[in-house]
Amino acid sequence: MTEREKLALLEDMLELDEGDLSMDMALDDVDEYDSMAKLSLIVLMEDEFDVKLTGEMIKEFETVGDIVALMNK
């Protein structure tokens, strides 16, 4: 999966337009990345990448790239 495809998965999850996200974007600046979105992210990571995210891991995410780095496919 390319980096662009991974970003597209996140854009789809956050109901954003394609190209809205970039790797170095701070998650604090993404309004759509709220508490419900974090729950969707847990499901997405488990379903698509078999990665089990904990609350602690989510708290440590600073940029969009931090999430993409865990998408190991």
Binding site: S35, K38, I42, L53, G55
Partner: peptide, 12 residues
């Protein structure tokens, strides 16, 4: 409530 941790517990 630490929502993300509780959610992760609930689905794991």
């Amino acid at each position: 409530m630490d929502g993300t941790s509780v959610f992760s517990f609930s689905i794991t």
